[in-house]
């Protein structure tokens, strides 16, 4: 159950932040879908929908996605289809249904650092920064590890348009369910970035595997070795969807598929 005393829809981010800081139980409303699942008493609900933050903008060297852009916006975005082999669009396409994706927002998902998140894993395998109203720009990698050290508002995310090839893979028990595991690989020049999420903990980079693959020509032997490294270095856990041994095994399958796809894209 959610209970809300007061509802405000600020016209500026400054105003939104002021309201957020005015009360301990003031809460930002993105799409509102995840808040609906929980039980929370909200003193002031801060609706961000009047701030024009639902943009996806392309610049010379970057793409900016506003906090209120929905997964539906991402899936349909002509800009995002042009880059990273549409990995971002593909990462959200199996999340529940088209109606929910028309509501849930990037800002809420990234700020909340959900372990099950599909798009977070994909973003982490790209050169991504988060832009917070108070704390400014931080790399997504750092933000995922440290979180926000104060109550803040995520304004947008910024992705370098650096010519990366990318491939996102996930495994679900059934379509529309949460992923058992997801994994995303990107390649720029001779360097790979590999992110693993829904472990079920939040997404992390596979640092050892990334180090091993740097500069390597990808063939069966290299893939086999990379799979051995990733299953050892990543901490997997168990939940109702799968146990950690299953996730371990799955990580190798998803890595092999994603690596092979990225290399094929290059050729």
């Amino acid at each position: 159950m959610i209970s809300i005393k007061e509802y405000v829809a600020p016209k500026t981010l400054d105003e939104a932040l002021k309201v957020l800081e005015s009360s301990k139980k003031a809460t930002i409303i993105g799409g509102g879908a995840f808040l609906k699942l929980g039980s929370i008493n909200i003193s002031k609900a801060i609706d961000l929908s009047k701030l024009n933050l639902d943009f996806i903008k392309e610049y010379d060297n970057k793409i900016e996605i506003g906090a209120m852009a929905t997964f539906g916006d991402i899936e349909r975005s002509k800009v995002l289809k042009k880059y990273f082999n549409n990995a971002l669009g593909l990462s959200v396409k199996d999340i529940v249904g088209v109606q929910l994706r028309n509501m849930v927002t990037v800002g809420a998902t990234v700020y909340s650092r959900y372990g099950f998140s599909d798009i977070l894993t994909c973003l982490l395998s790209l050169d991504t920064k988060v832009s917070l109203k108070k704390q400014g720009e931080i790399s997504l990698e750092k933000f995922l590890i440290e979180g926000s050290n104060k109550k803040d508002i995520l304004e947008k995310i910024i992705i370098s348009k650096d010519g990366r090839k990318a491939s996102f893979k996930s495994m679900r028990n059934s379509k529309g369910d949460y992923a058992i595991l997801n994994l995303s690989v990107s390649k720029k020049d001779d360097t790979y970035l590999i992110a693993v999420g829904a472990r079920p903990n939040r997404a992390t980079l596979a640092y050892e595997t990334i180090k091993y693959l740097k500069g390597k020509h990808i063939d069966e032997t290299v893939i086999k070795k990379a799979c051995e490294i990733i299953e050892d270095e990543i901490t997997f856990g168990s939940n109702i969807r799968a146990n950690k041994e299953y996730r371990k095994g799955l990580s190798k399958v998803l890595l092999k598929r994603a690596l092979t796809e990225v290399v094929n894209y290059e050729n």
Partner: peptide
Amino acid sequence: HFDGKAILSCVMLSLR
């Protein structure tokens, strides 16, 4: 449909 797009009315606050 909300401004022509399909949405779930059970998760949209009426004030939105």
